[in-house]
Design a protein around this nucleic acid. Sequence first.
DNA 1: GTACCTGTCTGGACCACAAAAATCA
DNA 2: CTTGATTTTTGTGGTCCAGACAGGT
Length: 406
Amino acid sequence: MGYMCDFCGDQRSMVYCRSDAACLCLSCDRNVHSANALSRRHSRTLVCERCNSQPAFIRCVEERISLCQNCDWLGHTGSTEASTHKKQAVNCYSGCPSAAELSTIWSFVLDIPSVGDSTCEKGMSLMSITDNSLTNSMDPPQSKDGQDVSVFIEENDVKNIDKSSDWMGSSAMPELRTKRQNVNSTSSKTCCPGTKASDLEEDDKFYEDFNMDEVDLNIENYEEIFGVALNDPEQLFGNDGIGSLFGVKDMSGADLNRRGTYAAEGSSIGLVKSMQPAISNPASADSVISSKTDPNLCFATQAHSSISFSGLSVESSAADHQDCGASPMVLMGEPPPWCPESSFPSTSRSSAVMRYMEKKKTRKFDKKVRYASRKARADVRRRVKGRFVKAGDAYDYDPLNETRSF
DNA sequence: GTACCTGTCTGGACCACAAAAATCA
DNA sequence: CTTGATTTTTGTGGTCCAGACAGGT
């Protein structure tokens, strides 16, 4: 696994494509991902220079090495010296950036080989660079023009991240962290500083017509739900927050298993709850739940628990989580909309909740009517206590007349 | 901490029968 | 192989009920 390009097997692998679960050299990355518009949207990042098998999410400035979350955790939690290492986010990208552009994305990587002239310049307009959401939402990157999209991680930020990961418990296995990392995968649709205007327009459309295909859950207006509901940490985590908004506040992990649809609806909270049974240290779990009152943790939770609508469940395998890497809906990079810098009137929120509830009522989950004729007949059949009755028998419900025969 | 009660929510069962699918001559 | 008749299976929606769960006492 890793080190050599999975495609050509000739060159050293340099980037990791989550969608393909493949380590590629830059040349093959370019070839593979210039094939079509869909492949251009694959989110890629550097491959971990330690394990050579996982996508890097952070670069240790001191060690000058890009690390996946697992290796970062293994390497930086042992000694206090290592834990103080400054780290830099490793950005994801999509499209077919040139070597120069990759140098811009990964300014710390000095030896990006030229991959030749762009063969998919059209794709460049689609290129997006996703910062791994390690920026502090309270202090967004200064540059918005994409010239310097790398984000420097201050120690506080890293600690915040660690806080967010504390819920995994001190005994949390690296595998779990890896899973979480996979869940945090990015896509070309994710917002990020430095995204070009056209991308932002696309993103706007994306939010406006937010379609969670993977869970068969259609919400036509993203902002209607999240733009309001997520603007306040209390709304997100509080008594009447997103839990109730999504109808999952009282759902256990078992419920999330049993009701995959709701697992998807539950967003990160559902995920956190669903994973609680696996947490060996209750205090650690509490540390996450308590994040509702801590803006920094609020950010950290967003950064690492992220919001995925891939229908995760406790029983999801590692592969499942890997698949989630291709999930089109992970919010990263942008300051979390629910952080305190903006506040929504409570009336707007309540109206948004009402609108959502109305939509939820009318929403059809996985129900598909295969035979319209049968449905039409069922719609007019008389019933007794909901059961169909023989023609001519007494009934207590007639869909056509809503009258009773007795 | 445990047991009990209450309220809420969910999935599944139930029903008749037309339509679809399968089987046979 | 094709066609028509016969038999079997499927799917439809409103209601009820058991079970799971959370919260309070």
